[in-house]
Nucleic acid binder design. Structure first.
Lengths: 339, 339
DNA sequence: TTGTAAGCGTTATCAT
DNA sequence: ATGATAACGCTTACAA
């Protein structure tokens, strides 16, 4: 039988209002009474009833924000779907979700989106931040004003963000390397196609992949090139790489770009390559289905969005801080048979 | 702004009580009024507020039951953990969980557990059933009396159970076969160690695995043996199999038994085997870590328990039937690098 | 500083 | 058959 505010009030010989003030540190309670109330609550193992809270919270009309600058990106659509699913589960708290999309890598846009969220009065924000000092500063400014902020999918330093929710990029690379180890245990000549060497996550993936490679006999990374996440560029750089390094027998796509890149391999008539990629967009799935990609390492985008909202909720509504600073998703291996 | 019973009542010109009776089919409402109310609710897109419901449900003191006869089984512990986690999230509905454990394969025990749940007045039961007619009959009897029942991890036929929640065994076998395809694309001579040929799930796994093997050049299943999920038996039958078929280069453990089986392989000095197993108990993880098992195909036990409770809840509290008759978990591939 | 009372949405009981 | 009312637990505006 769970303890209620009412019971605590009776035991402490005060009213429910006073208990509420004490429990939630709203002030205006005589210190000795406050102590007594907290002690009783502690001893009886009081946990607020979620339903009661929800009903009362409705009138507050809280809202959360999500900033992910990746218009029409299939991956981020999943993240958003996860976020919406979580928010739907908080419907009885009257919490709504504001979403800001837009172009990638546009600093001014992201700054103004943050500002707009602030003036809209959101209580918390999940953001996939551009890794620049101006953004750091703006984030800290909002946090200063009491807004809870966490990062999703990519992280940023020097801020007091609640936590990071997303891929463990290094381990993603290690896992890709592990699949390679099982498929081609030696004599690997790998070409890596990354998104951008300026993207921390992509670099961590490459590091993880390379670290595994180093432990394998007679295996090396031959070359690295950048796709900038564009199919045409991916096509060209992959084609160039494969042409100038005919010894390459393995490709690792550490970011988007597999579609363009594999087209190059097909055009060059290379069908003995071992290929590993990231994520499972529709296009990637097709390539896995066709056998052009042997395995792809995925990062649970849905859960990223879901967990992000869950953590904001716990922080704002229940005043519970995230258990870990880094909330990593699982690195899921997909092959043709378990797509 | 969500619609409430109160609003519907005003619009229909009746009291909240009447709306409640109409909406929940409790009877005692004039048919014309009932129709009108339902129409309004439909049109306005009424969905009951979860928090309000929770508060009201508290006094009902509902309870769910879980029957899994596998005392101290690491796998089922995870299923139970998932179930408990879900129930904790329904704490504000005042729902509790009754768990029945005990010995495996004891029909009388399971029958009496079902009976005990009934007399304890549970509203729903998740059961990992023994696949026998007596159990079928008992399950149908309870369902007849209004108790919602679903199966977890193993299924049973000829019942009106809500749905099955658990492993897609066939696809689990296919996935294992897929990993083999990537690691040893041809010339496979496979030995399979199953749990029991009387276990449907194990058979489906073998079928899936064999189907993939058939599509691979020069590959066959050499022999199949039963471990009965006991380490010592697994040791002996694996040892016998490997001794009488020295051509075996691949092992597939379609159930528990990998620990005993791999001990046999080690004792025989066979260290070039490709080995695939199921699940990720502590012992399996060790074997993967050591490199004796290359990959293991897991079935999300936590989520099985969690989903089972979620489906019971939706059925009982929200009167929503499960979307699919088969609620399959994902088949997760684990290798050393993403354990 | 503290208490009172109303309100959130749903359900159940008791009158009518 | 229907309506009125209270109850669930929490928050808060207002009164004392």
């Amino acid at each position: 039988m769970p303890v209620t505010v009412k019971q605590i009030a009776e035991l402490a010989g005060v009213s429910r209002g006073t208990v509420d003030r004490a429990l939630n540190g709203r002030g205006n309670v005589r210190p000795e009474i406050e102590k007594k109330i907290l002690a009783i609550a502690q001893e009886m193992g009081y946990t607020p009833n979620r339903a009661g809270k929800a009903l009362a919270y409705q009138r507050k009309n809280l809202s959360f924000g999500m900033i992910a600058n990746a218009e029409g990106n299939e991956f981020f659509d999943e993240v958003l779907r996860g976020a919406r699913t979580a928010i739907d589960e908080y419907a009885d708290f009257g919490i709504s979700l504001q979403i800001a999309g837009g172009r990638r890598y546009d600093v001014d846009q992201q700054l103004s989106q943050l500002e707009q969220m602030r003036s809209a009065g959101v209580s918390g924000i999940a953001i996939s931040p551009i890794n620049l000092p101006q953004i750091e500063q703006k984030i800290n400014e909002l946090i200063e004003q009491g807004i809870r902020i966490l990062t999703v999918n990519s992280d940023i330093e020097n801020t007091r963000r609640l936590c990071y929710v997303g891929c463990n990029y290094y381990q993603s690379g290690v896992t890709a390397g592990g699949m390679l180890r099982l498929m081609r245990p030696q004599g690997v000549r790998a070409g890596i196609i990354t998104g951008s060497v300026r993207m921390l996550g992509h670099n961590h993936r490459m590091k993880g992949f390379s670290d595994v490679l180093k432990s394998m006999p007679d295996s090396t990374v031959v070359d690295i090139c950048e796709s900038l996440d564009e199919a045409e560029i991916a096509y060209q750089v992959t084609r160039d790489m494969l042409t100038s390094h005919p010894e390459i027998n393995t490709l690792y796509f550490a970011a988007a770009g597999a579609v363009g890149g594999m087209q190059a391999a097909v055009d060059l008539g290379l069908n003995q390559l071992t290929v590993i990629s990231c994520d499972d967009t529709e296009e990637i799935r097709e390539l896995v289905q066709k056998g052009l990609i042997q395995a792809t390492v995925c990062q649970e985008p849905f859960r990223q969005g879901y967990r992000a909202m869950q953590i904001l909720f716990d922080s704002i509504v229940n005043n519970i801080s995230p258990a870990e600073e880094f909330c990593y998703m699982d690195n899921i291996i997909r092959i043709r048979e378990n797509l």
